[in-house]
Design a protein around this nucleic acid. Sequence first.
DNA 1: GTCTATATCAAGATAGAC
DNA 2: GTCTATCTTGATATAGAC
Lengths: 183, 183
Amino acid sequence: MDNRKTQIVELAFNLIQEKGYVAFSYDDLAKPLGVTKASIHYHFEKKEDLGLTIADRMLQALEQFPVRFASHTAQERLNKFIEERIERFGDHEICPLSSLQTDYESLPQELQKKVQLVSQKEIAVLADILTDMKSEGLLESSSDTNSLAYLILSCGKGILQYQRVLGISVFPQLFKEMSRLIF
Amino acid sequence: MDNRKTQIVELAFNLIQEKGYVAFSYDDLAKPLGVTKASIHYHFEKKEDLGLTIADRMLQALEQFPVRFASHTAQERLNKFIEERIERFGDHEICPLSSLQTDYESLPQELQKKVQLVSQKEIAVLADILTDMKSEGLLESSSDTNSLAYLILSCGKGILQYQRVLGISVFPQLFKEMSRLIF
DNA sequence: GTCTATATCAAGATAGAC
DNA sequence: GTCTATCTTGATATAGAC
């Protein structure tokens, strides 16, 4: 049953968004699936293997983004990039990359390396979109698109954290404020 | 020896900035101090007690900030607010509040409540400074100072995470970019 | 091949020694 | 009052049952 493997990855991905990488356990996966922890270990021998699979999925999604929207304008790609993120997160979820970044010092070396790659790729994908926007005159020519990418992503991730803790929805206003500043 | 208690708090505070709240253990505290875990439990019966003490310290520091700089201009207070943060963080440290926010779902209720208070207070302190700056004409009158506070803090915290993972120093450029946008 | 029973280790926490 | 020896639990991981 290869579907079980997918189930585990999906569940683990959600748990990372909710509890963080260090905080979630194999029992958190086993219980809802109605199996024992050891069964999870069959599919993913070590927690690191599961972490790597998830980080790889994140990396692939980022790599595919520019391919999926190759025929779209830069403005459309920016909108998609942001919309997809907004849709993905509920009230009790934070960015999975934020979780992995926070737990960075506890991660095994190979997973650390993968988290680095994902972090770099996420910045690069957004920076590319912003650079295209600059070419199209939608952004001031003096803008540092790389710094802007850091700024936008950091901001979005931070807001998710505040939202969850404070139980409020500041994303919309904040987004308006950010757009007003940048564009 | 009441100094031992202080030592523990200092150490735990650093560990939260490095590893996160869930990830650090009483053994991480005991080893460098040359005592057993149980000894730490004497000073802080439960991990939650230690967490609460640290969160309280963060809250007090925030409450004192406007008092310490009551006679300063809004611009000076903003500079101080940011400078103190920049000075506090090394290459392998992230914002302690970010750590507690990421681990939020794993925290005992009382500590969750305290993390909420710290989060609110941090936003409020910065928003107050920005509101004063608006009164002094240093900020566009249309600015939403509350949203700006979220934006600035989120951004700063996010950057610390990227910096640590990528081993780079993007804070300076990013800060320049942010200042250019906001002020 | 897929899973359970079990081992091992480290976590947080208690009770009792100095 | 301060700490150590010890307990209990829950974590990751292995070896072996179906």
